[in-house]
Nucleic acid binder design. Structure first.
Length: 276
DNA sequence: GTCCCGCTTA
DNA sequence: TAAGCAGGAC
């Protein structure tokens, strides 16, 4: 247990200066930082879940060009949405985004809520994403942690520690938060975190939150990904055609088709299987 | 706790 | 070849 729970004001100012100095010199220019549209910021946050910034930039541009407002997402088919999503991975996010859009259009008059409880109850929006939307879209001084933020605090305040829990980090995030400019502060913090990660070879491994992911090759994730990709490209296929195209063990393909059907990502229409 | 995706970088 | 990614749902 650390006893760093209360920081001195001078210490806080010095830390903030370090972060802001880095940001002034090396801060990233990102398309979703140029807009004030909460919808577009929400799209970026969902895309950025477990996905590198460099891979999101083009998809984000393409997505907001294709679907300029949340009404376009709500009224488009999942197939149209997945067509733009293709290659980003975690296809459930695209499904969540469509369901979320339908809820916001029908229940919230097409406006993104600026309330944590309302946001976090939307499909595909958890604690981190809800708070990121509040900070970046509504400039609210919320306290939250994601992987880059975690890295910064572990490096600066837990040097020498082998294991750090998020509950030890939250008070420090709260105390060092720039209440006047939460959007700029969190942008700077994340940019700085990316830098520290390269410099110290992923300090987040010291987090109790850290977890290594299971191998991708031969996994259900790979099979699911392939099923979705082929259906997005071909539009519709019979079960027989799909089994021919997805070159994995037939039993494994059938199992994953059932799961995808259960989740609403694919459906059976007549003799064809199509994107939900 | 496990599962969900696919790409870049080292 | 492996690591890791502006996490979420169950």
């Amino acid at each position: 247990m650390t006893r760093l729970s209360l920081l001195k004001p001078a210490h806080i100012r010095k830390f903030q200066k370090t972060v802001y100095d880095y940001h002034r010199k090396y801060g990233r220019i990102l398309p979703w930082r140029k807009t004030a549209d909460p919808y577009k910021i929400l799209v970026s946050e969902v895309m950025l879940q477990q996905t590198q910034v460099s891979r999101v930039i083009d998809r984000y541009q393409q997505f907001v060009n294709t679907f300029p407002t949340i009404k376009f997402v709500a009224s488009s088919s999942l197939h149209e949405i997945l067509f733009v999503w293709k290659g980003l991975g975690y296809n459930r996010r695209a499904h969540s985004l469509k369901r979320l859009a339908e809820i916001i259009v029908t229940e919230y008059n097409s406006r993104i809520p600026s309330d944590f409880e309302l946001l976090v109850n939307l499909p595909g929006i958890g604690k981190a994403t809800a708070n990121a939307i509040l900070a970046f879209a509504f400039k609210k001084p919320v306290v939250f942690i994601e992987t880059n933020i975690r890295t910064v605090y572990i490096v600066h305040f837990f040097d020498g520690r082998k294991s750090v829990d998020d509950n030890e980090i939250y008070p420090l995030v709260a105390q060092s938060l720039d209440m006047q400019k939460p959007k700029e502060w969190y942008s700077a913090l994340m940019d700085y975190g990316v830098f520290l990660k390269k410099k110290f070879s992923n300090p987040s491994r010291k987090s109790t939150h850290y977890k290594k992911q299971s191998p991708f090759k031969g996994s259900n994730r790979q099979v699911r990904g392939k099923i979705i990709r082929i259906l997005v490209e071909e539009g519709r296929l019979t079960e027989k055609q799909l089994l021919e195209r997805v070159t994995f063990r037939e039993e494994m393909v059938r199992t994953n088709m059932k799961k995808l059907k259960g989740e609403g990502l694919i459906i059976k229409k007549g003799k064809y299987i199509i994107i939900g």
